[in-house]
Nucleic acid binder design. Structure first.
Lengths: 339, 339
DNA sequence: ATGAAAGCGCTAACAA
DNA sequence: TTGTTAGCGCTTTCAT
């Protein structure tokens, strides 16, 4: 089957390729009748321009990349929905790359992404990302980069996050209001900025309420396959908390299971709050108090920032960090109980 | 900053562009010393080939598209993981397009995807997709298409699905074994093949067990915003089921909520099974018996089929449909109760 | 209002 | 083993 190119249209209409090209872009240089003939034939033959030829010429691909750790995570899935909602209107295409928390893989991806394949990048780093050279390199190639959720603080790149510090602070105060005396916090990301912020918010809330911070109550489960054991062990110990904040949704499952298996009742023996966007939070046993992150909005904001920076160059004066607040949704897992 | 192209390398090394090109592909035509010089300089200057120039020339983009209804759905997210696991090794890139169950949008996407941007397509259709012309058109452009999960039966295109009929049959028998006398089934997809298959499996199981099929027990919630009400109403009615199979995970939430709000106890008053890949099934109240679909494997199988069909042409003799079985995971929502 | 010519960066056929 | 030439399909001067 013959490939329909601009040349084909041109020869069929006895026009030049140039004229076709201009007509299809509705250029003012072309007469209305000509435009109509061109459009008619293009439609008839179902012409679509060859992306690569165009991109080669214009140095624009109308494609962005989203690099993130995981997609089977409601938070990230919603972020992608947000990104897609913006990007689709602008006619951009989205390449997705998953790092699976593998830092080397992240570097690899950025390496073979920087060849002109994309116009811009949205990225949420792995929990192991320790340098930023691979990202800075993209900027050098004039590929704009926007961080979302998992950022590198030091890098001079626009970032979109939620109010990690404040929402954690708020969660801690909520637990205090529920009568918790010994509040713990649990994370699986030792080094991510968001984790640090959330732990800082927790500590600050304790401090402001004149409660001594017990480092023993900050549980850091860095190895996936030991997460459950660590939590179980912690909940069995003498120094077990009576309130627990999970920094990330992935901890919900092991926490609930550990309680189940050790006979601890939620919320009677342990009150739980988790950062989570999982819709099933409301039908867990018991229903889970969550800090619901504005995932969709984060995606939208990041995508908008990126697309703006793709337009007329050098308007990079946008504020460096965009903060969209999370929402505390109170459910049964932090219900008041008479003890 | 100067753009590093093959020409730059060529002039720096006093070689021709052709030689560089061949050297970088490790062609047998080029001498080892030359190759080394080329590689060294390429590495030093951090050369990466321009994708678009290459694609324009070779008519290969090393990119596939995945078109699906939704990403914030654990099943689809896992499918994407499966796809990515295969595609990454082969050095392919993945464009993601979400239809949000919008048939028109699906057509649009396929329209502007068929311009050479992609080498192949993996698709799971919307619940409203009624024709297949837009898909057949891609095939005409020599873009291979593979269906996964949500297929169009009639189309002569490779498909990857789970054993919808059998797993539903099995679920129904499980409910019968649990003592259910009046089993219902609930779907939100009237027309999807998978929905039909699952309902047929359910009916066949009843038939084989000499139970009269009551069409009233097939609940079809086609309008999103009425789903909850329909379910609630059904569970309130005189003819309410004592066992219920949810064709899709999205129904879990409204079913649980309807039971909660109407005072029906699971599993005492109603036993529930849902097609679901949601990890939180085990910590729901009560934990949910699920039919767990092999989402990751489906993604892998589909991706492999696609990539194979991208290689040497015309080996299209692969079997038309690949069926990967689901697994019934029995939990508390179908526990035996003494009534 | 239309067209000729050049070239984006690469690769493939063909020479040398 | 290396180089010359041409051209993928498009857009962009710059003429006409």
């Amino acid at each position: 089957m013959e490939n329909i190119t601009i040349k084909v249209l041109a020869s069929r209409l006895n026009l030049s390729a140039t004229t076709i090209s201009k007509a299809l872009k509705d250029s003012y240089e072309i007469s209305e009748p000509t435009k109509q003939r061109v459009r008619a034939l293009a439609a008839e033959l179902n012409y679509t321009p060859n992306t690569y030829a165009r991109s080669l010429r214009t140095r624009k691909s109308e494609t962005i990349a989203v690099v993130l750790p995981e997609i089977a995570d409601h938070f990230f899935a919603l972020v992608i929905n947000g990104i897609e909602s913006v990007v689709r209107e602008m006619g951009y295409h989205v390449l997705i790359y998953l790092t699976h928390e593998d830092y080397e893989r992240e570097k690899e991806i950025l390496q073979y992404i920087k060849n002109g394949r994309i116009d811009g990048l949205l990225i949420s780093i792995t929990k192991n990302t320790i340098t930023s050279d691979h990202i800075a390199q993209l900027e050098q190639e004039n590929i704009p980069v926007i961080f979302f959720d998992r950022i590198i603080e030091q890098l001079q790149v626009p970032k979109v996050v939620t109010n990690d510090f404040e929402s954690s602070y708020q969660a801690t105060e909520h637990l205090l209001n529920c009568g918790c005396k010994k509040i713990g916090v649990c994370t699986i990301f030792a080094d991510l900025e968001l984790s640090k912020q959330r732990i800082m918010g927790y500590k600050q809330a304790l401090k402001d309420n004149h409660i001594t911070i017990d480092v023993d109550q900050v549980l850091c489960c860095t190895e996936d396959d030991k997460t459950y054991d660590q939590i179980y062990h912690k909940l069995q110990s003498v120094n077990r908390p009576d309130g627990l904040i999970a920094i990330v949704d992935k901890l919900t499952l092991p926490i609930y299971q550990a309680c189940e298996n050790s006979g601890l009742r939620i919320p009677e023996d342990l009150k739980v709050i988790s950062f989570s966007n999982n819709p099933s939070a409301s039908i867990l046993n018991p229903s889970l108090t969550t800090i619901s992150q504005p995932a969709f909005l984060i995606g939208q904001a990041a995508a908008r920032l990126l697309i703006n920076s793709l337009g007329p160059k050098y308007e990079q004066v946008q504020q460096d960090i965009t903060i969209i607040p999370s929402e505390l949704i109170i459910r049964t897992s932090t219900s008041l109980t008479n003890r």
